[in-house]
Amino acid sequence: MFRPPSHLSRRTALGLLGVGAVACATGCSASSTLDSLRPTPLPTPSAPTNPDRPVLDRVVARIRAADAGAPSTFTRPHATQLHALGARAASAAPSASAAGDQWRRQQTRLAADLAAAAAQAHDPRLVRLLASMAAAQRQLLTVQGLA
């Protein structure tokens, strides 16, 4: 079983974003007050950005979209996989846009999306995780006759 890559955890990242927002709010108000009293400060180094953040966000969004209205055969393993990515599973209630066979198309496309994400990721643990998830999706599609 995978443990979420610690520095890739969405909750951690969101927590950091929250901390950043508070710091910005307080810093902004202070600096606006002092702007007229001191010279323009040198730019401070920003927090290091996670290069895998766009890939991770895209994957989580694609899985959640594909799982809207999909049977538990797909949603159960995806919930475990999302947990490994540090994200929560999709809501159980299907969205209106997931009516009909849309989930089938989304699930079929998801295998390629996961493979593409694995090809783009930087963190070795995330690369392995996404490659394995792509393989798992191909297994599910094969068993369900959707491959």
């Binding site: 996989q81 392995r128 998830m133 798992a136 297994q139």
Partner: peptide, 22 residues
């Protein structure tokens, strides 16, 4: 190739796994 091997597992009695290869 990882996906291909995982799918072939199904031909020989394997069941879908949450994390193939592990």
């Amino acid at each position: 190739a990882l996906g291909d091997a995982a799918v072939r597992e199904l031909s020989f009695g394997g069941a879908p796994q949450t994390f193939p290869g592990t």
